[in-house]
Amino acid sequence: MRDIVRMVVVLTLIGALSGLTLSAIHRVTRAPIEYQTIKFVKEPAVKKVLTGYENDPIADRKKIVVGVDEKGRPLEVIIFPAKKAGVTFAVALEGRGKGFGGLIGVMVGVSRDGALLDIGITAHSETPGVGSKVAEASFTDRFKGLPLTKGLTVDAISGATYSSRGVVAAVEQAVGYVSKFSKEIF
């Protein structure tokens, strides 16, 4: 009986101490891990759509709540601001649209005066060789400099209508966030 009590006590103590240490370490590393993950996953796309900034858009990122998801949790979008002399002149943010093979993630650069700077595809699962052409510069360049005031019109890639529409939907979602929450963003 004494043995069993001792085993239980020892294992409980070791488990509790380990849990305590790990939660402390987790607390310390949470912010750097988030920064690193965003930096390595999103930075290439952010760099493509924003130019001429002097700050670190990843470090200066902010989250805005754009709505709630189906479970009632707040839906957040990360905004990457491009600043020159402390003034935000453009932002990059990600929108999603339904393509042929699933959701297409598009990083969209929007300038303060409401022009579309550039877009970059961050994630897609479109048909290789057909729908995947939307990720190429020949397609993404068609969005450069479009005004945001009226609906987007872009020549689709023939044979990849759904994929093209998916990208347009993603861009429109991102642009929609910008016009709806422009006060918080700029």
Partner: peptide, 15 residues
């Protein structure tokens, strides 16, 4: 426990 520590630290500083 130490493996998780290594994993977290590596993820945070040597991604």
């Amino acid at each position: 426990s130490f493996v998780v520590i290594v994993e977290l630290v590596m993820q945070a500083y040597f991604y």
